[in-house]
Design a protein around this nucleic acid. Structure first.
Lengths: 132, 132
DNA sequence: CCTTGACCTTCCAGCAGCTGGAATCCCTAT
DNA sequence: ATAGGGATTCCAGCTGCTGGAAGGTCAAGG
């Protein structure tokens, strides 16, 4: 299977697949013409990567997940730990963004948003203590 | 004022301040010794940047915000638009992360997390349709 | 006067995870 | 023979810094 077909099958751009080869996530064979020749297992792995990346796992997480996937003697706890850590990071990111959102909402709410220069948003940014 | 003092005063690392000069956000003068010589206005601007960045505004947003800040004839609507767009981006990012979080929570919840290899998380990633 | 140490300078490289583009090669069909 | 649609490599760039090397500067102490 050539890279274009694999791209279609896995949902990843060809560029990304080449990149994944670069960093050692997949190791397709090569034909006589120098083209990458992907096996079904390669395609499956790339689909796995596509799904894991879409769930926000880092490349390094993906590396670990794949090696666990390929290890028939794995402990599911190892997988769960990776996922839990990831979940924790997402949870704190959400909290952080929600805090930003609250602040921004307050500032935007206070600003008239008309053609006059008076602006509580800029006041806040410039450190004027005009809170209220 | 030397860069170290400004770093302290603005809350930005010296490296970052140099970087901001590189990309034209500040333009401190230079002393005979080649050291950057920051004015009070520079320090104020850097504090502004520090605050704006901590609110998640992009560098390009900051550029716009600063030019609005320095424009006495600005319309507060322009400021508010930048902030609103930013807020929208944050809001959709939050939604995206929350959706990820729900998925991950479900998967993690289903996984025993013991020393056996059986793992619904990997099943999901590998595309097995074992939903349930 | 010399040294030490804390500062400052520039420049180059690297982080994550791709993505775009150029130059070139290969394969198939007409 | 040629045209097109693949494929290949390699280099650069995105965001926003950050670390590190190699060197210049300054103030204080011996």
């Amino acid at each position: 299977m050539n890279i274009g077909d694999v791209a279609e099958a896995s949902g990843l751009p060809a560029k990304t697949i080449r990149y994944y080869e670069d960093i050692g996530l997949v190791r397709p064979k090569r034909g006589q013409n120098g083209y990458r020749a992907f096996s079904e297992a390669d395609v499956h792995k790339l689909a796995f990567l596509s799904r894991a990346r879409s769930l926000g796992f880092s490349i390094e997480d993906c590396r670990s997940l794949i090696s666990l996937y390929e290890d028939r003697d794995r402990a599911s706890a190892d997988v769960r730990n990776i996922a839990s850590d990831h979940l924790d990071r997402i949870t704190s990111k959400i909290a952080e963004l929600q805090s930003l959102r609250r602040t921004l909402e307050t500032l935007i709410h206070r600003c008239h948003g008309d053609d006059r220069p008076d602006c509580p948003i800029l006041d806040d940014l410039s450190g004027s203590e005009a809170t209220q």
